[in-house]
């Protein structure tokens, strides 16, 4: 009785160790070198997955940048993201592709909303709430202004409004004074 249990445990143990070592070996043997820079670039990008850069999402765009694509194609990220990308890639900052538009936020005219949920499905950041046959509304704090919700709306009731200037989002337009840090000391 004890012996048969011991044999069973031993067999399973050996089988498991065999398979485990096979997997361990193959994980080294078949290691895929993923370009670590893609991950870093992807972390810089705003993850709105809006597709305004011409790529299906932020990860594909990060991959494209690593392969030599321009770094100025991300409207939601704007200048700040472009500068970070330039720093990471070790290249000069470039002018943003196209006019830098004022920051927009979507607004649903609720009297015309028929509750079709199409804009909710289009929104990459889940900034629209509402349900079937109930009117929808935009959480303006979450909205990135990517305009993806405008096209699917069957009643054209979504406007893109510029963000009203408030004390919360006022940007001091000060010229930054570049300071030089002597790293050799």
């Amino acid at each position: 009785m004890i012996i048969s249990i011991a044999i069973a445990i031993l067999t399973l143990g050996i089988l498991g160790a065999l398979f485990g070592s096979l997997l361990g070996y193959s994980s080294i043997r078949f290691k895929v070198k993923e370009d670590p820079i893609v991950e870093e670039l992807d972390a810089i990008l705003p993850q709105t997955q809006c597709g305004q850069c011409g790529y299906p999402g932020c990860k594909p765009y990060a991959q494209a940048i690593a392969d030599g694509e321009e770094i100025n194609k991300c409207p939601p990220g704007g200048k700040a993201v472009m500068e970070q990308l330039a720093e990471r890639m070790g290249i000069e900052p470039q002018a943003l592709d196209g006019e830098e538009k004022p920051k927009l936020v979507a607004f649903i005219r609720e009297d015309q909303c028929i509750g079709c949920t199409k804009c909710i499905q289009a929104c990459p950041v889940d900034a629209i709430i509402g349900s079937t046959r109930q009117m929808h509304t935009v959480i303006s704090d979450e909205c990135t202004g990517c305009e993806l919700c405008v096209a699917p709306c069957p009643t054209d009731c979504i406007d893109m409004n510029p963000i009203a200037l408030t004390t919360q989002n006022w940007q001091w337009d000060l010229n930054r004074i570049p300071t030089k840090i002597n790293t050799e000391l």
Binding site: L12, L15, G16, F19, L22, L23, S26, F30, K31, V32
Partner: peptide, 19 residues
């Protein structure tokens, strides 16, 4: 042991295919 085999086959296939 079959569950063990299946798990290993799936993992192994994934690694080889990734490469």
């Amino acid at each position: 042991s079959f569950i063990l085999v299946i798990a290993v086959v799936v993992q192994f296939t994934e690694m080889v295919m990734h490469k």
